[in-house]
Design a protein around this nucleic acid. Structure first.
Lengths: 112, 112
DNA sequence: ATCGTCACTTACCTTTCAGTCAGTACCTGA
DNA sequence: TCAGGTACTGACTGAAAGGTAAGTGACGAT
């Protein structure tokens, strides 16, 4: 095994943070404000509980999302973007716009 | 198995295109002009020939990079960004800047 | 005749990612 | 007493991504 290399560029670091199938969707869902675990599950079609938690934990450990526990019954946990998370989302916006602009072309060249 | 879903948002489409360990680096390397296969190999530390070709072929099939063969001996193949590739790179710039801005913080929270 | 360059190609193996499914703990309302 | 909601946790499994190492073919130089 190789020792961890420092990130070679900003893009490298960023894709490490948003890597994985579900992280971009989570960021997207949180864009409009705090969400409970169950709400996220409903808003992100296809995600399983395991994956959702796993990705949320990773984002939390990177200080992208904040996890707030309300000690109630039934339990309530709210996830929201941190300042860092908000700035990441802003940096992601042009990429989303690019994807939206070229959606048709990209659909045509899927799964070669 | 599920039939291919249409992309749920632009971000979804974009990450499908730049997904994979090496694609962002390839895009980055091509940012400054056309490159030969061997040049890319040298400029992208750690990439193997197999990976480099595989990712280049995928980018080519998505019309992000252009492949130009010069029928010489020894052979010469040049890769360059298409118009679509250039626009993708521009959309990627803010993300790279974000990563660069928060490099130090991100290094600290690696590999939880 | 063999070597080296360049751009691949192939076979095989390991690691990582993602998915299923079952279970936990707590309290509420019927 | 017992189903139901809420937020998890963990074992197991299969698929996909990534890596290693070796080989190919054209041709010019030595």
């Amino acid at each position: 095994m190789v020792a961890a290399m420092p990130y070679s560029c900003g893009l490298d670091a960023a894709s490490d943070v948003i890597g994985g199938k579900w992280k971009p969707r989570i960021l997207w869902a949180l864009h409009h404000g705090p969400r409970r675990f169950g709400e996220l599950r409903k808003e992100i079609p296809g995600v399983t509980e395991k994956m959702l938690i796993q990705q949320l934990r990773e984002l939390e450990s990177r200080d992208i999302v904040h996890r707030e526990v309300y000690h109630q019954v039934p339990p309530k946990v709210e996830y929201s973007l941190t300042t860092l998370g908000e700035s990441l989302n802003e940096a992601l916006a042009p990429l989303d716009a690019w994807g939206a602009d070229h959606l048709a072309a990209l659909e045509l060249t899927r799964s070669a």
